[in-house]
Design a binder for these strands. Structure first.
Length: 490
RNA sequence: GGCGCCGUACCCAAGCGGCAAGGGAGAGGUCUGCAAAACCUUUAUGCACCGGUUCGAAUCCGGUCGGCGCCUCCA
């Protein structure tokens, strides 16, 4: 099946064709580790995870590289401001390395809570300063740089295609509207490749370079590291939508100035999560983290489910009301799936495996050979699901396919469950963990359950309800069914 | 000032020329202990507003109002 993706470069949906058959090389811009990631940041990583899972679902071998910025991003532009990591270190009385290490670990823990698969390669900026220097030398050799006031700048005027990704026309931009113009620059859009001067004199993180002892500019790391691990020309580069006008625009200029050829084929950008009409920002202090959500009683997967309800290129309105509806929705979904699974296992299938995807290869259902136990009706839902995810990752529609399948009483259980597992390869909601658990309870709890049954027999419903409430507080839900009393954990 | 995007039911949100997906919440019903849970059914003749194009528009064009993002490190 062909996958169609919206390419920011050119702003249109295009069929995805990899550089190399069956392989996908993608670079995803990672975090600057000077604070916890907030749920707005995390939305983008969930989107990238869906992209990667979709590609893998359709049989591509994906090599995904993500950077971790542990140095080099300043608090503001105009080549002023402090390095965020170093400032955070100062505030907390730690070294920059400690700060970066701490938040990097926290970041990947958040990702795993959200069931976001870890990239194939995670690379830190500070481990790749040599690569950055090498890349800057290539750019310099090709004549795209100039030195001024001690810094080495990229000369935007030498790169005619500058700004194409963002559809910028330099003459239209009101440079200096919000930022003081740097007197050292020939053009306000020029940017620093290497700092040697000024306020970094007394700081710990500095490196020797052909331009003097100093500090890399803050766009060069992604270009250098992506090219190191993925080559001079690769398939996909992703990030948040905010990266389009500056970061990615500058990255393209640098990379293509160095190689003299096209760098990346497809650019994909995730839209923002917005909070009461404002974007969530670390600097604005209005941010919510995964820990916040956990403390409020949400499962991180509730948030993942919430994000899956909206298309990645639309802004998503966050509110706790909306998150509650996602939480309830997911709970209902898991419960239904648990029942389907029970039914499937009862009918004899000991272990139901996910249905093979339609990769077009022999052995998949596209060849006309249904797997045992999978009926055509279930496959129809899966086909619809595949059509939707391959259409620029229409996950909201794909999620609707899942719901429609789950609710369709005419689909046989083993097939149904098998298709659900197949869909979950992309959705990553851990649907396979849904289970009607025969949980073991303590003596005390089981006594309470017995006592309640006795009260019900005596028609002492007041006491029965009392006990149910007590159990509920302990996280046990009691259900009276025609088959007798059942209980489960919340 | 420039550039880009958006406005769909109580909430979140798909759809982007052919009779408005999905989830939550609400309502009704089945079951039951007038309970809980579960299950079933149901909820926009309408898509900010005003014009236009078309056999046909939420979807295309123009205008108005409102909101967001970017032009500064930010997912």
């Amino acid at each position: 099946m062909s996958i169609k993706l919206f390419n920011t470069m050119g702003r249109q949906i295009q069929e995805f064709i990899p550089v190399e058959d069956n392989k996908v090389r993608m670079y995803t811009c990672g975090p600057t580790v000077y604070n916890y990631a907030h749920i707005g940041n995390l939305r983008t990583y969930i989107f990238e995870d869906i992209l990667r899972r979709t590609l893998e679902y359709f049989g591509y071998q994906v090599k995904q590289v993500m950077n971790v910025t542990d140095v080099g991003h300043l608090t503001d532009d105009a080549d002023e401001g402090e390095d965020k990591v170093i400032r955070s270190a100062k505030e907390k009385g730690k070294t920059a390395r400690e700060i970066a290490g701490f938040y990097m670990e926290a970041f990947f823990k958040d990702l795993s809570l959200l069931n976001v698969e870890k990239p194939s390669v995670v690379c830190k900026a500070t481990d790749h300063v040599d690569d950055m220097i090498k890349l800057i030398r290539r750019i310099e050799k090709n004549g795209f740089t100039y030195a001024s006031g001690g810094n080495l700048y990229f000369d935007v005027a030498k790169f005619p295609d500058y700004g194409r990704l963002a559809m910028l026309r330099l003459e239209d931009l009101k440079a200096g509207a919000r930022v003081k113009i740097d007197e050292q620059k020939k053009s306000p859009h020029d940017f620093v490749l290497w700092f040697t001067k000024s306020k970094f004199e007394h700081q710990s993180m500095m490196w020797d370079s052909p331009w003097g002892r100093g500090y890399p500019g803050w766009h060069i790391e992604c270009s250098a590291m992506s090219m190191k691990y993925l080559g001079d020309h690769f398939d996909i580069h992703c990030g948040g939508i905010d990266h389009i006008p500056v970061h990615h625009t500058n990255e393209i200029a640098q990379a293509e100035a160095a190689t003299g050829k096209k760098w990346v084929n497809y650019w994909l950008h995730g839209e923002f999560l917005v909070l009461s009409k404002e974007k969530m920002a670390k600097s604005a202090g209005n941010f919510i983290t995964i820990s916040t959500l956990i403390d409020k009683g949400y499962d991180p997967l509730d948030y993942r489910y919430f994000c899956l309800g909206a298309h990645y290129r639309s802004q998503l309105q966050f509110s706790f009301e909306a998150l509650d509806s996602a939480k309830n929705g997911r709970a209902g979904l898991m419960e239904r799936i648990a029942r389907i699974r029970e039914e499937a296992e009862k009918t004899g299938a000991e272990k139901v495996s996910p249905y093979a995807a339609d990769t077009g290869a022999p052995g998949t259902y596209a060849s006309g050979k249904g797997a045992p136990g999978t009926d055509d009706k279930a496959i129809r839902y899966l086909k619809s699901f595949e059509a939707h995810i391959s259409q620029d990752l229409n996950v909201p529609k794909a999620l609707a396919d899942l719901w429609n399948l789950v609710k369709d009483g005419s689909v046989e259980a083993v097939s149904k469950y098998s298709v659900i597992l197949a869909m979950d390869k992309v959705l990553g909601l851990r649907l396979g963990t849904a289970q009607m658990k025969k949980i073991s309870v303590s003596k005390e709890i089981s006594n309470l359950i017995d006592e309640r049954e006795k009260a019900r027999e005596d028609k002492d419903y007041k006491r029965a309800d009392e006990i149910r409430n007590i159990l509920k507080e302990r996280g046990i839900i009691v259900e009276d069914t025609p088959q007798g009393v059942k209980w489960r954990k919340v």
